[in-house]
């Protein structure tokens, strides 16, 4: 952070450091400061056109660009993996336009941009986790009017969300949101955790790292500052329960990590492996 105008590292000529111009980055930083000051509150910002389509992480990229400095080390994950198209493209993008060092290692990174996961390795103070958010409004499926959801947030009127959980239990016998399970931040704002698995929800609570959320298409930014209370919505007699496949990772044998189911052949063969590739590799001693 605190990017000097002439960065120390080499980056692609003809582009400003980290692609966005300084005025835009300042605008985004202002929105970020406000978001950090009001945990869980959605702050509008002037999202720019980015050189990738909406839905691929334009919000996350803009937030990363705004907080990135030449001495930062960037890690990008997509569903926990460092080696998928999306993650590779975004990492290479910042490698080019900012000349920053990139890594696969959660421990080495100062900024981690993520799509739909929180790394298994515990984050520490000073790290920044940037989420790509497709839909920042947790109430959008229940209340289509933005003016009304804004009012509901202002009044802290979240009975509607509870009704949705009630309906889940009635229909499925349990709360059926395996991902994007809504959370209350700092006891005040209802927040969408972006589509992370509910398995990851508890990691947001009292996390030492700064968590920033960027929604490019919806033009919203929100944040969870370090050491902030994040509680998943539930009922007293149906407590929130993170869901994990009841298997051990086929590669590293972990019984703690979040697993992906991978189809291996046409005969119905399947294995369960860690979704966090860095965590899995580290356990295997690579």
């Amino acid at each position: 952070m605190n990017a000097p105008l002439n960065p120390v590292a080499e980056h692609l000529a003809g582009y400003n450091f980290a692609y966005l111009d300084e005025a835009t980055k300042r605008m985004i930083r202002r929105a970020l400061l406000k978001a950090v000051a009001i945990p869980g509150h959605q702050v509008p910002f002037g999202a720019r056109e980015m050189p990738l389509p909406y839905g691929w992480g334009t919000g996350g990229i803009q937030v990363t660009a705004a907080v990135l400095g030449p001495r930062d080390v960037l890690k990008v994950i997509d569903q926990g993996a460092d080696d998928t198209t999306n993650a590779v493209s975004i990492r290479r993008f910042f490698g080019r336009v900012a000349g920053v060092r990139t890594t696969d290692r959660t421990r080495e990174a100062t900024i981690i941009q993520t799509r739909h996961r929180i790394p298994e390795t515990a984050l520490r103070e000073g790290q920044v986790l940037v989420y790509q958010v497709p839909m920042p409004e947790p109430l959008f499926k229940l209340e289509p009017r933005v003016s009304e959801t804004t009012r509901l947030h202002a009044l802290g009127d979240y009975g509607l969300m509870q009704v949705k959980l009630y309906e889940d239990i009635v229909q499925h016998g349990e709360v059926a949101t395996a991902y994007n399970h809504p959370v209350m931040v700092n006891g005040r704002y209802l927040m969408s955790p972006s589509p992370i698995p509910s398995f990851d929800n508890p990691k947001m609570h009292m996390n030492p790292a700064l968590q920033l959320f960027g929604a490019g298409r919806e033009k919203r930014i929100y944040a969870v500052p370090p050491y902030t209370e994040v509680r998943s919505l539930d009922f007293e007699d149906h407590p929130f329960r993170p869901i994990r496949a009841p298997h051990a990772c086929e590669l590293c044998g972990s019984t703690e990590s979040y697993l992906d189911e991978v189809i291996t052949d046409d005969q119905g063969g399947r294995i369960f492996v860690c979704s966090d590739t860095d965590y899995c590799a580290e356990r295997r001693g690579e």
């Binding site: 509870q162 539930d234 007699d237």
Partner: peptide
Amino acid sequence: RLMAAGSRHF
């Protein structure tokens, strides 16, 4: 209305 009024016991 119960949930809006703060009831959280299913």
